[in-house]
């Protein structure tokens, strides 16, 4: 079996007395959707922040495509092929969706240090950005400033931006939160389609979606991974039932 795209070993990070992530070992393989579930405050978002480089770990290592990246800044990790959607949409209110996606394409297309040519005339970039927006069903809303988009539309835009980075590893922190059933269904279909091209870490609360989509599921409770396995294994796991699914044996 091929080397996983992303491997964390013994990854820990505390905030004061709280161990938000405690000795987390997790890997994402090429072509899989690996779901990370757990109750609120389990440390899932902290884990995404550690992996993407927004915060640094206390101990432990992160390997991306075989390279040790735990000391690299966020920009370098993005350059190596990691993309992330934010749990709370992180967008520029005055910029349109299309501009967001164009900006995401720029690092691979000669960079941003071009001062004279108007972006409006970069036909090829705009066409490609338009394709990304079409994949998430946002093409007809492409030119509207983000301030005028609904919460669900912003979530969709987050995905389009992540796609534009052509990532090998995609970290999705509750991408469907606030999306509505139609948007969620479309996103689920899109993730299913993307699965072959990249490894995806999916943090999601909706269990039906998780069990339908994920190849593997890890359960996080109190900063620790308590179980990893496929949907059937997780459903029948006793620790998970007591700790998370709320069933008493």
């Amino acid at each position: 079996m091929a080397e996983p795209l992303l491997v964390t070993s013994g990854l820990s990070r505390g905030f004061g007395a709280l161990k938000a992530c405690d000795d987390v070992n997790l890997d994402i393989r090429a072509g899989e959707i690996h779901a990370l579930i757990g109750p609120n405050g389990a440390g899932k978002s902290t884990f995404v922040k550690l992996v993407s480089g927004e915060i640094g770990p206390d101990t432990g290592s992160i390997h991306l495509l075989g390279k040790s990246v735990e000391t690299l800044p966020m920009t370098a990790r993005a350059g190596l092929g990691m993309a992330r959607s934010f749990q709370v949409s992180a967008l520029a209110p005055s910029m349109s969706g299309l501009e967001h996606v164009v900006l995401a394409l720029l690092p691979h297309e000669g960079g941003v240090f071009h001062f004279l040519r108007p972006v409006a005339r970069e036909r090829e970039l705009r066409d490609r950005a338009g394709e990304m927006l079409a994949r998430v069903g946002m093409l007809d809303r492409a030119e509207i400033p983000v301030a005028g988009l609904s919460h669900g539309e912003r979530r969709q835009l987050e995905i389009a931006i992540a796609l534009a980075l052509e990532p090998r590893v995609l970290l999705l922190d509750e991408p469907m939160a606030g999306m509505g059933p139609e948007g969620s269904a479309r996103l689920a279909a899109l993730l299913n389609e993307l699965r072959g091209d990249m490894g995806i870490l999916l943090i999601e609360h909706d269990m039906d979606t998780v069990f339908a989509l994920a190849d593997r599921i890890s359960v996080m409770v109190g900063g620790r991974i308590v179980a990893t396995g496929n949907a059937d294994e997780i459903r029948s796991d006793e620790t998970v039932k007591t700790a998370y699914l709320g069933e008493t044996p």
Partner: peptide
């Protein structure tokens, strides 16, 4: 474009590489 994002959301800009 990059400058607008640097003003409104520097974290996102870093995330784009």
């Amino acid at each position: 474009l990059a400058l607008t994002m640097a003003r409104e959301n520097p974290l996102r800009l870093a995330n784009l590489g």
